[in-house]
Design a protein around this nucleic acid. Sequence first.
DNA 1: CGCAAAATGTAGCCTTGGCTTCAACATGGC
DNA 2: GCCATGTTGAAGCCAAGGCTACATTTTGCG
Lengths: 150, 150
Amino acid sequence: MEDDKAAPPAGDAMREAARHASARSARASALLHDYVELIADLLEGTGEARPTDIARRLGVSHATAIKAIARLKREGLAHSKPYRGVFLTAEGQALAAEVKARHRVVVDVLLALGVPAEVAEMDAEGIEHHVSEATLAAFERFLGRPRTPG
Amino acid sequence: MEDDKAAPPAGDAMREAARHASARSARASALLHDYVELIADLLEGTGEARPTDIARRLGVSHATAIKAIARLKREGLAHSKPYRGVFLTAEGQALAAEVKARHRVVVDVLLALGVPAEVAEMDAEGIEHHVSEATLAAFERFLGRPRTPG
DNA sequence: CGCAAAATGTAGCCTTGGCTTCAACATGGC
DNA sequence: GCCATGTTGAAGCCAAGGCTACATTTTGCG
């Protein structure tokens, strides 16, 4: 069985292609998510999110951060006036909340599975962007804190 | 405490920067991993790995696949003669085995956590590239199949 | 106030990973 | 044996996300 060798790509290959496409798109949005999450964090913590701080926390040059911020603005997630800090739009804030919640759940699952705290934080940073809604729900069930049942 | 607002970035920000750097580098190798994994799969299944098949399975154009294959060759993971299929070097095979093992473990953990099979496959495609050795070990312990103790 | 330092922004360069288009090669059918 | 078809490969375009170098603006200190 499984002699899809010759020709007909449809069934299997298509599903696999879809999986990869999905992973690629998650990879693409991961950067934006990181920025939004961090900006929210800075705003909460210190009241302002300056490009330099963002760059330092992300470990990139300030120019890189500024270009990314420009993209955030283009996508309607953030706004800023020159030489003033960066702020999130309503949409950006919503995204940040979502991303942060997801991050927490992923870390907690890793911890529950016996992953050391340091490592859990590390890996979660990459994993969180690939956790779908369904998986997130399963994680929450597993942690014994199901989402609003309604 | 925690007034790292003003100046000295060292402690906290540095660790966070390291986390992000690590995630970025995982993102970078993810593509290579996907190709190597798929090539191994095709070689096993049908005996040959043609660029066109690779492209179809990955859901990209054949040109994109060929460029990626060139990169695999540059990195010493694959080799190929023009118009003949693609093959993995010893290093490539080792990497493929590692990646596939990781994939299996991630899928199994997701399943054990109650994620539906379809979704588990989907998410694993992205997650697997961000699972460190330590986390992988924890996963295996959780699944009750610890690695060779030696 | 005025000037130096720091933060911000801009420009230009590189690599990656997509794409399409076109040329070259191989294969199979007739 | 030859030509159509399909695979392969090469070239060139684009956006993203890094970087450095340079220009500009703000800020704060003397």
